Simulated scan of single mutants.
Amino acid sequence: MLGAAAFAAGVLNAVAGGGSFLTLPALVFAGVPPVAANATSALAVSPGYLGSTLGFRAELRALPRRRLMRESLLAALGGIAGGLLLVFTPARLFAGIVPWLLLFATAVFAAGPLLLRWLGGPGAASQEGGPRWREPALFLVAVYGGYFNGGLGILLMALYSVAGETRLNTINALKNLNSLVLSWLSVATFVLAGAIAWREGLLMMVAATLGGYVGAHLARRLPVAWVRAAVIVIGLAMSVVFFRR
């Protein structure tokens, strides 16, 4: 079950996102405690961010190096803060939060295209490098991503759109880079805290990586609207199941 969930999550992340809607519930249903399940889920999907970031090397090279380093540092600090917040959240409290986080992430994913249309637009930035709130907002989104990965990509894309980035490839490049940094740093925090279920996590890393490879090919063939609809249905179904539990 864990291998199949991770493989499907890798496919979903490559095509439209939302893979954590499968990995987290699968780990909980397999008997992994909720906090460890969330940490292990983050580990399972983390390799996919590297390939996504490397795919946008040209766009990243075109951006100011100092700004990239500053934003990567903020993403790293936010990822560590979110990871520590998860580690120190009592298991019973986190179990009660999970269905709300799943529901929020599903809503963000479903509203993603509308968010990007409403918030985006040329000339939104008030100064070079974006408005002053851009970096504090990035830190807060990174904290959320370190704590709970669901819907992170859409939140980052919405942030960069409203902050004045007008090129979709640049937005995707920044989203992938910061997701990579905060995800790996939060996972490192989970490792140091002993919050990872290694047997399940390593199996799921391999399966998710294979799924990402297959998903990259399917992305050229499957209508994204169908995949998005499937992710939303899965997210809502998992939310209902966790609320009942």
Score class of each variant (00 low, 15 high):
98 V>E: 12
179 S>D: 10
8 A>S: 06
228 R>F: 05
126 S>R: 13
21 F>G: 01
105 A>S: 15
14 A>H: 01
152 L>K: 09
148 F>H: 07
82 G>N: 14
25 P>V: 06
113 P>I: 08
230 A>G: 10
184 W>N: 07
13 N>I: 10
170 T>F: 02
159 L>H: 14
2 L>C: 02
195 A>F: 13
87 V>N: 13
115 L>C: 06
13 N>A: 01
16 A>G: 08
43 L>E: 07
14 A>K: 03
81 A>T: 15
150 G>S: 12
208 A>M: 05
145 G>A: 15
133 W>Y: 00
88 F>T: 15
51 G>N: 01
19 G>K: 00
22 L>I: 05
245 R>T: 02
160 Y>N: 10
45 V>D: 00
156 L>V: 02
54 L>Y: 12
75 A>Y: 01
106 T>L: 03
43 L>F: 04
131 P>K: 04
86 L>P: 09
194 G>H: 13
60 L>S: 10
68 L>C: 14
33 P>W: 00
164 G>K: 07
25 P>D: 04
163 A>S: 15
108 V>Y: 09
161 S>R: 15
9 A>L: 04
65 R>T: 14
63 L>C: 14
92 R>L: 15
124 A>T: 07
153 G>S: 11
232 I>A: 10
189 T>A: 10
111 A>N: 10
78 G>E: 06
18 G>D: 08
17 G>S: 02
124 A>V: 09
235 G>P: 06
221 R>Q: 07
226 W>Q: 09
98 V>R: 13
141 V>W: 06
96 G>I: 12
219 A>P: 07
160 Y>A: 09
69 M>D: 11
131 P>G: 04
12 L>P: 00
153 G>M: 03
109 F>R: 10
54 L>S: 10
159 L>W: 04
110 A>W: 11
176 N>K: 03
140 L>N: 06
112 G>Y: 00
85 L>C: 13
125 A>E: 14
202 L>W: 15
202 L>C: 06
119 L>E: 04
222 L>Y: 04
14 A>G: 04
24 L>K: 05
18 G>C: 01
152 L>T: 13
163 A>K: 11
44 A>S: 08
116 L>W: 01
72 S>C: 12
33 P>K: 04
155 L>Q: 12
4 A>T: 06
13 N>R: 12
198 W>N: 09
168 L>W: 14
17 G>M: 09
28 V>G: 05
35 V>E: 03
123 G>K: 03
185 L>A: 15
58 A>H: 14
51 G>C: 03
137 A>E: 06
176 N>H: 12
201 G>C: 11
55 G>Y: 15
50 L>W: 12
33 P>R: 09
14 A>P: 04
175 K>S: 09
29 F>E: 07
24 L>C: 02
95 A>E: 13
171 I>W: 04
152 L>E: 07
137 A>K: 06
89 T>N: 15
158 A>K: 07
